Simulated assay, not measured.
Amino acid sequence: MAYTIDRHPGPDAPRLGAMVLHPIAESVPRARRWFQKFIAPYNPACSVDDCALMISELVTNAIVYGRSDDPWVVRVEWFREGASLRVEVHNPGFPASVRVRRPDANDAHGRGLLLVDSIADSWHSGPSPFGGTVVSFVMADAWPS
């Protein structure tokens, strides 16, 4: 089950929304639907469908590559940073394992980060403040400055 968190981390990057998801396949469409629902009131100028697609890819990766000996969750958060939208996906995996693959045409998997790399204005991976890994993407000019 997902739920929203209404906290805002500060005036420089107000959190617009967040969700916590179980690491199961059903969480991928749930993340997409919840993002589309909760970002709508902010009326971003960037493509919400593109963002939802990238969230789907990153949540899928978080579920596939997340690792923990304890029960764990995938966290998705989105922030407004000036005119930009930043979306973060956190899991208990290792930052060193995040990389863009160049799959062969016949490969059924491995295009998630390649897709994020081609759509987002920028993306980043590194250690998550929750432990594990965070992968984020930025859509510039999501709102007027």
Rank of each mutant, 00 (worst) to 15 (best):
T60L: 12
A140F: 02
V138I: 14
S136V: 09
G132N: 06
D49Q: 07
T133K: 05
D12M: 14
H8G: 12
M19W: 00
I63Y: 08
I55D: 00
R30F: 02
L53S: 02
L85I: 01
L114K: 06
W123N: 08
H109P: 01
P129V: 12
P14Q: 08
R111M: 10
D12P: 07
V135P: 04
M19P: 00
V135C: 13
D69T: 11
R30I: 10
H109E: 14
A105Q: 14
K37R: 09
A13D: 13
V134K: 05
D49I: 03
F38D: 10
A45S: 15
H8F: 07
D104H: 14
P14S: 08
M1R: 02
P92T: 12
C46Q: 06
Q36A: 14
F35H: 03
S68L: 09
C51I: 01
P41F: 09
F94N: 15
D6P: 02
A52F: 00
P92S: 05
W143V: 12
V100I: 15
R75Y: 05
C51F: 00
L58M: 15
V76L: 04
I55F: 00
P71M: 14
S97D: 15
W34P: 00
Y65M: 06
M139V: 08
G112I: 01
A25L: 12
V20Y: 02
T133P: 05
S97K: 14
A83F: 00
R75N: 07
A18K: 02
W72G: 08
M139S: 14
A83V: 00
A96E: 14
T60I: 12
W123S: 08
M19T: 03
W123G: 06
R32V: 07
G112D: 03
I5T: 10
R32K: 09
R86S: 04
I55H: 03
F137Q: 12
Y65I: 03
G110F: 00
V28L: 11
Y65N: 10
M1E: 08
I24W: 05
A18H: 06
P11F: 13
D141Q: 14
D121C: 12
V73G: 02
H8S: 15
A140G: 04
G110M: 06
R32N: 00
V116P: 10
F79D: 07
W143R: 13
G17T: 03
D12W: 10
V138A: 09
R99F: 13
V89T: 11
K37N: 10
V74N: 00
N61R: 13
R101K: 12
M139K: 07
A96V: 11
M19G: 11
R15Y: 03
M54F: 01
Y65L: 11
Y3K: 10
A83H: 07
E26R: 13
R111K: 05
R15I: 04
W34D: 07
F38W: 07
L53Q: 03
G110H: 02
V135L: 09
N43P: 01
M1D: 05
F38I: 00
P11Q: 11
D141M: 06
E81Q: 13
